[in-house]
Nucleic acid binder design. Structure first.
Ligand SMILES: [Mn+2]
Ligand SMILES: [Mn+2]
Ligand SMILES: [Zn+2]
Ligand SMILES: [Zn+2]
Lengths: 139, 139
DNA sequence: ATTGTAAACGAAAATCATTTTCGTTTATAG
DNA sequence: CTATAAACGAAAATGATTTTCGTTTACAAT
């Protein structure tokens, strides 16, 4: 967890109980969470927690690279712990919501293709893979 | 446009003036649109149009494969005309909002990687490429 | 330990994109 | 021309997310 506390300090974000607990919750699990789910879990430890606090903290965590977000059809926010710097993508189990990093990135190739096919300059890309994780496909 | 009218008929969707005009608007442009943008353009032709109608029609168009949607950070809905069946992806110009099809898909490879790395079964994927289109990078 | 200060927080309200409801109108097949 | 299912508009509802603002807290400097 010290790694995260360092990242907070570097951004002038204080090490508050709510932030610490959200980090603990997310570190304990490989799943993605909605702000509401985090809120429910936070309330098990704190009598008073505001939902805006949860939204704020998750947003900040994303900005400083502690968490990433996933895209779902309902267009709601979901976050999971991932602070790997290296270019990679994520596999999401549609049953248990586990998120796994996939060491793969074809961006150089895509960049070239876009250049050749369209004459356009690819700057960013977003790839998300969905399916059934090992455990879920076996049960 | 007959291709689209056929698709509507096959799904028991009537060829209504609003649907025809939305198709015309979207066919005229290579950009993606928010429901509100479509609404504004519709109002140039019809004195009475409800915004729910726009949302309904765009949703239906997506369901029957006339339009696709894009993902943006603000988590709002954006649609563009694309009824290509073949597996491919899209390049989006972040300046002019033009959408271009990119003939490329590495899913077979990804599937194998996910299987090897995680023992999981990849079923779907979503890839979106962003950057500057040919025209925008030249100006 | 005390204090100053910026950051964090909670409660309540606001925002605002999207959806639902429902009574009326329209497309189209027979 | 009718019948009927589909489509529509207006108005209201929904619900996730954000804003506001007065109070509290973390923490670094005294
Ligand atoms: Mn990549
Ligand atoms: Mn692909
Ligand atoms: Zn799973
Ligand atoms: Zn452009």
């Amino acid at each position: 967890m010290n790694k995260y506390y360092e990242m907070l300090k570097q951004q002038n974000l204080k090490k508050t109980p709510k932030r610490v607990e959200i980090l603990r919750i997310m570190k304990q699990s490989t799943s993605y969470f909605s702000p509401l789910e985090i809120w429910d879990l936070l309330k098990e430890k704190f009598q008073k927690v505001g939902l805006p606090t949860v939204y704020r903290i998750l947003q900040q965590f994303q900005e400083i690279g502690i968490v990433s977000s996933i895209q779902k059809d309902n267009n709601q926010l979901y976050y999971f712990l991932c602070s790997i710097r290296q270019d990679h993508h994520h596999f999401i189990c549609r049953k248990c919501h586990k998120v796994s990093c996939v060491q793969y990135c074809d961006f150089d190739n895509i960049k070239q293709l876009v250049e050749d096919q369209l004459g356009s300059k690819a700057e960013t890309h977003f790839l998300q893979i969905e399916g059934l994780c090992k455990e879920c496909r076996e049960s």
